[in-house]
């Protein structure tokens, strides 16, 4: 059951077409990713979904509401964490949550939310004195204070250190597990791969693909590579006879087998039969990065 439907969304800024015919649906309870390089139209797309911007054409339905017409009602049910947003330096964590909870009809319990997001020890700390990770937690808390059914999280982990990023990812999974549908906007591959149930790849205002992370990686080409150093010489034809194998190459002492399907299993079975030990065995699989290059013809800057 889709909770969000976006159909042929178009948004221009002056003569620049920021969003050019974007369509997607988001199902209840999933983490839906919107992945693309900076300036691809990701933020504009979600800002239309949030009802902050008016599309030039196209149709959007969020929880059965039209963001353009029922914006005020939608904001009761949709929590958002925006890029480039902040709080006054001297505002304390618990004050921020207390204030924002007054904006909603049926807010969540601020104290529980503070604890859930691990901000308990910081409840009296001023915004200026929070670390980047703590600010993002607070931002997520503010997005959740209205008990939203949908949460939109835009560039959540930009600027965070690796540990804070991983903690934030766990938090996003917890949010989803609590029954909130999440739209996650990101330009990080690893983030999309780790968190998203499905994702839309957007480039230059257009959707280039919508799939699961694994599905997208597969589309990039099923080509896999198995590398190893055999303990004894190995006849290439033994490998080439396997239906999974498409090629065998040698790089110094290393043998590189390319192919598809269950390549690793096929290769190791042959080796076992010949009682050859494969040293330094490695498998290279197409990643979401490769998928992005394959889909858009360029790399996604990290």
């Amino acid at each position: 059951m889709p909770v969000i439907e976006v159909k042929d969304l178009v948004k221009d800024y002056g003569s620049h077409r920021a969003v050019d015919g974007v369509s997607f649906t988001v199902d209840e309870g999933e983490i839906f990713g919107i992945l693309g390089p900076n300036g691809a139209g990701k933020t504009t797309t979600v800002e239309c979904v949030e009802g902050l911007r008016t599309p030039d054409s196209g149709r959007i339905s969020v929880l059965g509401l039209d963001p353009g017409r029922d914006g005020a009602e939608l904001k009761q049910m949709l929590g958002a964490q925006l890029q480039e947003s902040s709080l006054p330096d001297k505002m304390r964590v618990e004050e921020a949550l207390d204030l924002y909870s007054s904006f909603y009809r049926d807010p969540a319990d601020a104290k529980r939310l503070i604890d859930m997001l691990g901000l308990g020890p910081k409840r009296k700390t001023q915004y200026a004195k929070l670390s980047g990770g703590q600010r993002q937690r607070l931002s997520i808390a503010l997005a959740l204070i209205g008990r939203p059914k949908v949460a939109v999280l835009d560039e959540l982990t930009t600027g965070l250190d690796p540990q804070a990023r991983r903690d934030t990812w766990e938090l996003v999974e917890e949010v989803r597990d609590s029954g909130v549908t999440v739209i996650l906007v990101t330009h990080f591959m690893d983030e999309a791969e780790r968190l998203c149930d499905r994702l839309a790849v957007i480039d230059s205002g257009k959707v280039v693909a919508i799939d699961t992370p694994a599905g997208l990686a597969e589309r990039a080409g099923e080509e896999q590579r198995v590398r190893f150093r055999p303990s004894a010489p190995l006849d290439d034809t033994l490998l080439l006879d396997l239906p999974e194998v498409t090629g065998v190459e040698h790089a110094g002492a290393q043998t590189v087998v390319t192919g598809r399907g269950n390549l690793l299993h096929a290769v190791t079975s042959v080796l076992a039969r010949k009682q050859i030990v494969a040293a330094d065995l490695r498998v290279d699989q197409a990643s979401l990065d490769d998928a992005f290059v394959a889909l858009t013809g360029r790399a996604l800057e990290q």
């Binding site: 925006l82 947003s85 709080l87």
Partner: peptide, 16 residues
Amino acid sequence: TYRERGMLRRMWTTPV
């Protein structure tokens, strides 16, 4: 200052 530093943007997403 509120606008420039995105404090209003933060509030924009709420029903207030």
